[in-house]
């Protein structure tokens, strides 16, 4: 949609209710959160701090619908579930890598969208 491969901002736009300044604010927050939270999740996995990881992925669960990338959304859900029940943790790294891999192109596209508004 709108030439983007990795993001779908329809939910964000819907929730902005046509208010450009709100959309801009939400985009700013998205950029900031993704840049901080995705690497943080990696650190938490390395530390095997499953409680903190669960909290981080739970927070990300309400952030990612604004990005509209279902692969990231699914990967994050897998991480949250594993961290919550502390089961199948051997796969957590793999899902984190999905987030890590998709994060740069997502950020790039979000920045493009943000640039359009400024």
């Amino acid at each position: 949609m709108n030439g983007y491969r990795h993001i779908n901002l329809s939910y964000l736009e819907r929730m902005s209710h046509g208010d450009i300044s709100v959309k801009k604010t939400l985009l700013e927050m998205l950029l900031k959160e993704l840049e901080v939270e995705i690497p943080k999740m990696k650190r938490l996995i390395n530390r095997q701090d499953w409680l903190a990881l669960r909290e981080a992925s739970h927070k990300m669960k309400t952030t990612l619908p604004f990005v509209g990338n279902h692969t990231m959304l699914d990967a994050n859900l897998e991480i949250e579930t594993r961290a919550k029940y502390e089961e199948r943790l051997e796969d957590v790294h793999q899902y984190q890598q999905v987030l890590e891999k998709l994060c740069p192109p997502v950020l790039e596209e979000l920045k493009k969208e943000y640039a359009k508004l400024t």
Binding site: H17, V22, K59, T62, T63
Partner: peptide, 15 residues
Amino acid sequence: DHKMNQIVAQKTIEE
């Protein structure tokens, strides 16, 4: 606690 959710909820209700 989530800022984006704060904004979204507020904006949606105000709409």
